[in-house]
């Protein structure tokens, strides 16, 4: 009855993708930092996932299974396009909300971006995508202990960064 399982998986998968597509896009965007490339990654990931859907044993694993594919596809993509990511002024302006008075937030805004990818991805998957640390470790192909230490380091970095920023504004 493997075939039937596969078809049931397909229905669940299609529904899952439709409901969560914006989350996948955000995750892909976090790697590519470019709209078109993020769309490419989402498309690649869905196709790849559907081709290996039969090998997904349990639908309960679908979420972390698919996130793993998205992460890997995005990293593949970065590897293939090793280049400096330059954002043009228009995009920059568009992405930066018009905040006139709250200077702290402007700096906070870059806090996540300035975090090295290895820490950033742990924060995003664990806090923003609500994945258990064990799943995060599985998705990123790292040990649970590594995931933990990266998360702590990330929080530490974020705090330090923000405190520094506050110190600066207070003095300046």
């Amino acid at each position: 009855m493997k075939k039937r399982n596969a078809f049931q998986h397909e229905e669940i998968f299609v529904q899952f993708i439709r409901e969560q597509k914006e989350r996948f896009y955000l995750l892909a965007y976090n790697y590519t930092k470019n709209e078109q490339d993020a769309l490419d990654v989402v498309q690649d990931s869905i196709q790849k996932a559907m081709l290996s859907l039969d090998r997904l044993e349990n639908v309960e694993y679908m979420k972390s299974w698919f996130y793993k594919i998205v992460v890997r596809t995005a990293i593949d993509f970065l590897r293939k396009h090793k280049r400096l990511q330059v954002t043009d002024d228009d995009t920059l302006q568009y992405l930066t909300p018009a905040q006139e008075d709250v200077y702290e937030n402007v700096d906070l805004e870059h806090a996540l971006e300035e975090l090295p990818l290895m820490y950033r991805e742990v924060v995003i998957l664990h806090y923003f995508e609500d994945l258990k640390l064990a799943d995060v470790a599985n998705i990123l192909n790292i040990k649970l202990s590594t995931a933990k230490s990266r998360l702590y380091k990330a929080l530490k970095l974020l705090k330090i960064q923000m405190q520094d920023v506050k110190g600066e504004t207070a003095h300046g």
Binding site: I17, Y25, L26, L39, V42, I46, Q47, Y94, L95, L112
Partner: peptide, 21 residues
């Protein structure tokens, strides 16, 4: 993180990928 704009092509890209898949 959640406020990053979602391009309107996303729907279509997703549906297309599902169909081709």
């Amino acid at each position: 993180y959640n406020e990053i704009p979602i391009p309107k092509e996303l729907d279509f890209v997703v549906e297309k990928a599902l169909k081709q898949g």
